[in-house]
Nucleic acid binder design. Structure first.
Lengths: 222, 222
DNA sequence: ACACAAGCGGATAAGACATTCCACTTGGAT
DNA sequence: ATCCAAGTGGAATGTCTTATCCGCTTGTGT
């Protein structure tokens, strides 16, 4: 999984075997917790889930950002790969569409990564580099898709982060209906980006009942 | 401003004059604070801004929801009025478009109200009634705009809350670029909703620099 | 086997938060 | 002018958070 000598940007010295094991358990636990609860999950809850002491967590990851960077490095790498693959697509519009759907699905699948993608977190260099490379590949794709005449001429690469922020907003607040609502949003956005006759939206309209299930995540200390 | 005997759903008994004055100051202060900071603003900060003790705030508004309901009652009323006015528009598409732009602009102008509109907060009955009436007027407008052939046939009323969640997400995370990014999102969404040839988007593309200014609102105690 | 640096985890400090308590003050009716 | 229910502000309580400290344990090189 991690063959490179230095990972997560931090040139940590060689760890003792038990420390290495704990580190892996922490990342694994954090992956699960962040995925379900988003980045607002507390360090203590992650330590508990990992079965290690709080001090161990903080020794390995001095700030929450360090942990976030370590946890989502591979997801950001998947994002980069998706962008590079989309760029190779012969039909730029198909590539554009596939990439946008993929990255939004990555968000829908993981509340934590949704937030990472939605905000310019002061994350590790490696992560930001992958993000940047994905963005550049996407920008090339945008130019080609416009040249094909399939993408709105006034679309710009910077519209992607806006869509990611919007999608993250839906996912954060839509509760049970989040996956469905997200697909609906993305479908409508892509339809708006396209030039030419509209295609039907794939997902069914969200029932009002599901939207009623929207939840407030304000801490209700009681 | 408030001629009705019972307001904010809570049939509070007649208040002493100084209490009434404090209540008004609290609401005014909360309006300002919520607008700038969103609903996550602390009760203590609002009491401080109002120049009253914490106990006074809690006596008048036992929970944060009560305060939110009192503060945003008029904004929700403005939303309702906008929907009713849009329904009267001869051209349903124009009404549709105007309403969507108006309600999203209300969000962009007020972080707190953006959150209120984005989530089914367990708010006061009066507020929920206004929201419901706006939704019903909007639904009628949707039907007429579809009949006109100007609105995508598979658009449904429930797509509006999704847009509101998406817009709130952008506003929450885009920092300085929020108003611009929001206009861009809304413009693209509306273009996608329309049937027929695409119009150019009104706002200029957001410069990447502004998007770099996105901010994390995680409490950085220390 | 042993020494000891590296690692461990629970206690703890320090700060933000919602909410309650209580001794004091005051508007307004008489 | 007097009275007191209504109102007040700040201290206190309890929870939750990030972050550090410190005495004990353990992997590992010799």
């Amino acid at each position: 999984m991690e063959p490179s000598p230095e990972e997560a940007g931090c040139d940590r010295a060689r760890l003792r075997s038990d420390a290495e094991r704990n580190r892996a358990r922490i990342i694994e636990a954090a992956r699960t917790v962040y995925r379900r609860e988003g980045l607002s999950a507390s360090m203590a809850s992650i330590a508990r889930a990992a079965g290690v002491g709080i001090a161990t967590l903080f020794r390995r990851f001095p700030t929450a950002s360090d942990l976030v960077a370590a946890v989502f490095e591979d997801a950001m790498e998947a994002n980069r790969k998706a962008a590079l693959a989309a760029r190779e697509e012969p039909c730029a519009w198909d590539g554009f569409r596939a990439y946008v759907e993929t990255v939004c699905a990555l968000q829908a699948d993981n509340r934590g990564f949704a937030e990472v993608l939605a905000m310019s977190f002061g994350t590790a260099k490696g992560m930001e580099r992958a993000r940047q490379e994905a963005f550049e590949a996407f920008t090339e794709l945008v130019a080609r898709a416009k040249a094909e005449g399939r993408l709105q001429p006034d679309f710009v690469g910077e519209d992607l982060p806006i869509l990611l922020m919007a999608n993250a907003g839906v996912l954060a607040v839509a509760g049970d209906a989040a996956p469905e609502a997200s697909r609906r949003l993305v479908g409508q956005m892509i339809r708006g980006f396209a030039v030419g006759p509209a295609e039907a939206l794939a997902p069914a309209p969200p029932p009002q009942r599901l939207l009623r299930g929207m939840v407030r995540q304000r801490r209700t200390a009681g």
